[in-house]
Design a protein around this nucleic acid. Structure first.
Length: 284
DNA sequence: AGGATAGCCTGCGGGC
DNA sequence: TGCCCGCAGGCTATCC
């Protein structure tokens, strides 16, 4: 469920708590959630901790699409992907409610800790020698970030595929950051049907799509993201954007625009809600 | 080759 | 009340 807005809110709240702080000790409770992409020689002897920013000052928390990265002052970049059920939490200590499924804990010098928790383990942690390696080996597979992509870039990507528009927008290799919630909200906002063929989107439609995408994601970030079940930021605060959803989770209810019933169907293997009269261009 | 789909994994809500 | 089933979904692997 964490999509770009939720991940960005986690990034901001996490950065406020950890930038400038030094990692004193790393506890890995479930080693299999940590994927070591390459092992710098000097740290090999310290095992997993050595590649998880142990003894490093954290200088930055970055985000690309739905992925986060903790950057060490001297070396080390740790990519955290929250997947569906993942979360990062800052606390003086890991609370009992957070104990189950907590896989990695970074204890900070001077007190406090950051915990990575992920019940379903669709997410994980990937370690790299530095930021450049993270970008080359992992983030290079992602398309431009949804808040940065230009209309020209998106139109170029969409024009090359006959997939459904929704499937294309969910493809992180085309544009990074959208998930099921925000794609449905976006397509309703611009009045395009999820089952429109991606390549039929005109430059003008794509321009509207990109403007609506920036507006939607920015408003969601400002609202603290969408909390459906248990999403919260790094300080444990829930978001409020779910109250502004116009189609997601509202199948069968009234369209806020035309008052007809919203339809639920499966598109790109995902539950999809759209208004049959306000969103045009469906095929097959 | 590219697109659709299954499977990973756990929690939770609905129905009986 | 309690149990079981199905669904939720980001991403990778596999099939078509």
């Amino acid at each position: 469920m964490p999509e770009l807005p939720e991940v960005e809110v986690v990034r901001q709240t996490l950065a406020a708590a950890v930038v400038g702080r030094q990692v004193e000790r790393v506890v890995v409770k479930r080693p299999d959630v940590v994927r070591v992409e390459s092992i710098p020689q000097p740290t090999r002897s310290r095992g997993l901790s050595g590649v998880l920013l142990d003894q490093q000052e954290m200088v930055e928390v970055q985000r690309h699409g739905k992925q986060l990265a903790l950057i060490g002052a001297v070396r080390g970049a740790v990519c955290v992907h929250l997947g569906m059920s993942g979360g990062l939490r800052v606390a003086e200590e890991v609370r009992p409610r957070w104990e189950p499924h907590t896989h990695v804990v970074w204890h900070l010098r001077g007190g406090g800790a950051v915990a990575f928790r992920d019940a379903r383990r669709f997410g994980g942690v990937w370690t790299f020698p530095d930021e450049a390696a993270l970008r080359t080996r992992r983030w290079s597979r992602l398309g431009p970030d949804a808040l940065q992509i230009t209309s020209g870039q998106l139109h170029g990507a969409l024009s090359r595929t006959r997939r459904h528009l929704k499937a294309a927008l969910l493809d992180q290799g085309l544009v990074a950051g959208l998930g099921n919630i925000y794609v449905d909200e976006l397509l309703f906002a611009v009045g395009l049907h999820p089952r429109k063929v991606a390549a039929t989107i005109t430059r003008i439609e794509c321009s509207r799509l990109v403007r609506a995408m920036r507006r939607l994601l920015s408003r969601a970030i400002a609202a603290g993201g969408s909390t459906l079940r248990d999403y919260a930021d790094a300080d444990g605060r829930a978001g409020g954007f779910q109250r502004q959803h116009r189609v997601y989770g509202r199948g069968g209810q009234m369209c806020v625009r035309c008052r007809r019933n919203l339809a639920t169907e499966t598109v790109a293997g995902r539950t999809t809600v759209a208004c049959p009269s306000c969103q045009e261009g469906a095929v097959g």
